[in-house]
């Protein structure tokens, strides 16, 4: 389990990276490498060149203001997780990051790298979609902004075009009164989720005003649960009947669940529905957590 040979390149600027990626169409960006290097060890990935962006100072920024959190492509997951500034403004990010891999991998893995990897069972793509994050992408034709829902195209498939790399991701800060939870069913601690959910509820007192929910590890991409979101505004508590309605809506939102060796599609649909009800109910019972 050793990588195939490749050329290593550590450019001194983002434009240098873009140039190299444009010149070598099958080159891969190396940031933390926590998904890429294992894939290369299995020779599932055999890029002819790696462009190492981890040391580009321009990509190391974490900017936090009252409206958004912007994270550069060189910033590790653990750095964001431990940032008190991020935790104040956007606790959802730290909440989601706790579920990503293990501390030992978060020390090296980057937030933007998770997006670029686009693993359907990854927490960060789901959070990005659920919060309408925007990715900043730089390529031979300049810089463009891509909303996360458009960026994640399929399993391990993104909107990145030849020569492009993610330079940062921008998470908008949720409205006041929003709480976010990540919930997962995984066979083992720290495993990729078998069924995952990101749920954000914005409440006014006890009443839900706005709901954003995104299931992940259940389909080729994280999917927003639009019917569930439609049912929740106005809700204060979830009795048994309401719970059943919500579960049915969640099951209906998941049109085409994936089946694999870990779980059947039918299981994923049922478990996602249960996870939605359980999570929403638990959030409603926890009035303390009303920070954004």
């Amino acid at each position: 389990m050793k990588p195939a040979s490749f050329d290593y390149y550590r450019p001194s600027s983002v434009s240098g990276a873009v140039q190299a990626l444009a010149d070598s169409p099958f080159a891969k960006v190396l940031a933390g490498g926590q998904s890429l290097i294992p894939a290369m060890n299995f020779r599932l990935a055999t890029p002819p060149m790696l462009v190492d962006i981890a040391r580009l100072e321009d990509l190391h920024g974490v900017e936090v203001d009252e409206h958004e959190v912007t994270i550069g492509a060189g910033v590790t997951q653990r750095h964001v997780e431990m940032s008190t500034r991020v935790a104040e403004v956007m606790p959802a990010l730290a909440e989601a990051l706790r579920w990503v891999g293990h501390i030992q991998t978060r020390n090296r893995g980057t937030v933007c790298g998770s997006l670029a990897h686009a693993d359907p069972s990854g927490e960060l793509p789901a959070l990005a979609i659920n919060t309408d994050a925007d990715l900043t992408v730089e390529g031979p034709n300049g810089i463009r902004e891509v909303p996360a829902p458009d960026f994640i195209r399929g399993p391990f498939w993104t909107d990145l075009r030849p020569g492009e790399l993610i330079t940062s991701i921008r998470f908008p800060v949720a409205p006041r009164g929003t709480t976010t939870r990540v919930a997962e069913i995984a066979h083992r601690s720290g495993d990729f989720a078998t069924v995952g959910l990101v749920a954000s509820l914005t409440r006014d007192g006890r009443t839900i005003r706005r709901a954003r929910l995104c299931g992940f590890a259940v389909a080729g991409t994280p999917i927003r649960l639009r019917s569930v979101e439609g049912l929740l505004p106005g809700v204060e508590q979830l009795d048994e009947t309401a719970g059943r309605t919500l579960a049915d809506a969640a099951a209906a939102d998941l049109e085409d669940p994936v089946g694999d060796i870990h779980a059947t599609g039918q299981y994923r649909r049922e478990a996602l529905a249960a996870l939605v009800v359980r999570t929403v109910r638990s959030m409603l019972e926890d009035p303390q957590r009303e920070a954004s």
Binding site: F42, H187, R188, S189, G190, D191, F192, I261, H262
Partner: peptide
């Protein structure tokens, strides 16, 4: 085989 790694063969950790 439908397994090639520890992502398919699930050895319990201390949490299990």
């Amino acid at each position: 085989p439908q397994f090639a790694s520890f992502l398919e063969y699930l050895v319990p950790t201390c949490a299990e």
